[in-house]
Amino acid sequence: MSSTNDTGIVADRTSGRTGRTHRYRSLVGVGLLAALVAVVATTLAAALAWAAGVDFEIPDGGEKIPLGGFAFVTGVFSVVGVVIAVAFLRWSARPADRFVWTTVALTAISMVPPLLSGADAATVAALLALHLVPAAVMIPTLARSLRARTG
């Protein structure tokens, strides 16, 4: 009788662990796909702004931000967003709400450097818009994914 109960407990623990692992892997998969979409969308938007005459020149060194720079930075911070989502899924009772509040605040903070850069108005406006493109992809996608895994 006790061996049956022991087997049931082990099976429950194993299935629970597998379910939890699946939640994380699934969230990471959705997040990485969203990151790829964010990178493409941001790079495309930067290319369109560049074609429209925005030079993306930062006055300090007189250097222009290359398109690859937009792709790289978007990719890195999108992956950081996925890590934040996984952490909230693991340690928060309300991961989607916490994720949205945190990432909206981080997006707002990310708007400060372009405003302080001293670049021309077109570059500043384009940089601000380019901060919103990946946020518009990543935040709703990961929040929806977090709600699906906790609901």
Rank of each mutant, 00 (worst) to 15 (best):
A129L: 13
V124S: 02
T4M: 10
D120G: 10
A38V: 00
L127N: 02
W91L: 11
G62F: 02
V28G: 07
P59W: 04
L146D: 01
T123M: 05
T42K: 06
A125K: 00
S117R: 04
D60S: 08
D6T: 12
F72A: 15
T74W: 12
V100S: 04
F70D: 12
W101K: 15
L106I: 13
G75C: 08
A121Q: 09
L67W: 07
A35Q: 06
M138E: 01
F72Q: 13
V39N: 05
L27E: 08
P66I: 02
T42D: 04
W101P: 00
W91K: 04
L48P: 05
A122P: 00
G29L: 07
D97V: 13
V80A: 13
M138I: 03
L106K: 11
V86H: 12
E63I: 00
A85R: 07
V39R: 06
R25E: 04
S2Q: 13
F88K: 05
R90L: 09
L115R: 02
V79A: 12
P66K: 09
T141R: 01
R98K: 10
L106Y: 14
T18I: 13
R20W: 11
L33P: 00
S92C: 11
G118E: 04
T7H: 15
T103N: 15
T74V: 11
T42Y: 05
L116G: 01
L115W: 04
A129I: 05
D97P: 01
L127W: 01
L32V: 06
V40L: 14
H131T: 07
L142A: 02
E57C: 06
G69M: 11
R17E: 09
R90V: 06
V10I: 15
R20K: 09
P59C: 01
A71C: 12
P95C: 06
S2K: 10
M1F: 11
R20N: 08
R149E: 15
G19P: 01
M111N: 14
P114K: 15
G68K: 12
G81D: 03
T7K: 15
G53F: 08
L36R: 07
L142T: 01
H131L: 03
R90K: 14
V40A: 15
T14C: 03
D120V: 02
T123A: 06
V124G: 01
V54M: 07
F99L: 04
D12Q: 14
A11W: 10
A108I: 14
F77Q: 10
G29D: 07
L132P: 00
D55P: 02
T103R: 13
A125Y: 00
L146Y: 03
V30H: 10
V37C: 05
F56P: 03
T141E: 01
